[in-house]
Design a protein around this nucleic acid. Structure first.
Length: 293
DNA sequence: TGAAGTCAAGGCGCG
DNA sequence: CGCGCCTTGACTTCA
């Protein structure tokens, strides 16, 4: 199994810097993106030294890349840095995901929202294409306007509008209020899109199945090893991610799963990832680094 | 330099 | 019907 964390590394550098739309300029986008990509490469190398082989790249890497005001070719300008980061990923068997924000709503009933969602997804896929890596792009189903059945149908309809490089990379995650694992599985049946299982969301929003049953079901949607999101809740605040790894919970959790890669959605990022690596190693469940025996 | 004010975007729940 | 919430909240301006 591999363990990963999200977007940036607090002890190393910031890979998710952005700025205000009001200060948008070609120079500002490039300056920030260069700094984010240099940091990303440092993080990936640092992660290798610490046996962390899964990483979620920030959607902020190239700020405003999908905004209509960004008309220049950022891929061209950033190609060598994108290539360098991609080399680190490929040469070491690192697994990559991305998770666009709440404004990507594929099943929106508003045409303008669908269009901007497609643009944002295209940016994510283009970034991974430019890095020449096999990364997954993880989204939620979206809103429930008109009822869940209608909303799922709208997702299926709008899915056909996505560019091929997005379709190939897209995976769907169960959410904590509306769309359960079972709902996501119905989209796998119609669209062949794998399902990312989030344990915290599944515990808050399910159809009576256990976590183990949910995992068995989503496993069948993946050709490669399933990705799962792992978190626990911070106190009694519904859906709020823990500030740090609950080691006892994690240990028990790990006993119940095999053959998955685990993305930690824990707020202290690399700190918890280091602890999780230790625990997996202890339990003999940690993937070794490619080409290093 | 610290604090206050503002931020691209959607959708939902709550009052 | 308008507002706050999603977030280790962060950027930017103002004093």
């Amino acid at each position: 199994m591999k363990v990963g964390y999200v977007s940036t590394n607090y002890s190393l550098c910031k890979a998710d810097s952005t700025f205000r739309l009001s200060s948008l300029s070609r120079e500002r986008v490039l300056k920030t993106a260069i700094s984010n990509l240099e940091c990303l490469k440092r993080i990936l190398l640092w992660n290798l030294d610490h046996e962390i082989l899964f990483f979620r790249i920030s959607s902020n890497t190239v700020p405003f890349a999908s905004h209509p005001k960004v008309t220049f070719d950022w891929r061209e300008e950033l190609s060598s840095l994108l290539g360098e980061a991609g080399d680190v990923v490929r040469e070491n068997g690192i697994r990559i995901s991305m998770h666009p924000g709440q404004y990507v709503v594929i099943n929106s009933q508003r045409r303008d929202v669908v269009e901007s969602s497609i643009a944002e997804l295209r940016y994510h896929a283009d970034l991974l294409d430019a890095m020449e890596v096999e990364g997954r792009i993880q989204v939620h189903v979206g809103g429930s306007f008109g009822g869940k059945v209608e909303a799922l149908r709208r997702f299926e309809t709008n899915f056909s509008l996505l560019p091929d490089n997005v379709k190939r990379r897209l995976v769907i995650e169960n959410d904590d209020r509306i769309f359960t694992v079972k709902d996501c599985l119905s989209l796998f049946t119609s669209l062949n899109v794998p399902v990312v299982l989030d344990n915290l969301h599944q515990s808050l929003n399910n159809d009576g199945e256990t976590f183990g049953e949910a995992l068995d079901m989503v496993r069948r949607t993946w050709k490669e090893r399933p990705m799962i999101d792992y978190s626990t809740q911070e106190g009694s605040k519904r859906g709020v991610h823990a500030s740090t790894l609950d080691e006892n919970h994690f240990r028990e959790f790990i006993k119940s799963v095999d053959d998955v890669d685990i993305m930690l959605e824990i707020r202290d990022k690399e700190r918890s990832a280091l602890r999780a690596v230790e625990i997996l190693r202890e339990m003999g469940k940690l993937d070794r680094i490619k080409n290093r025996g």
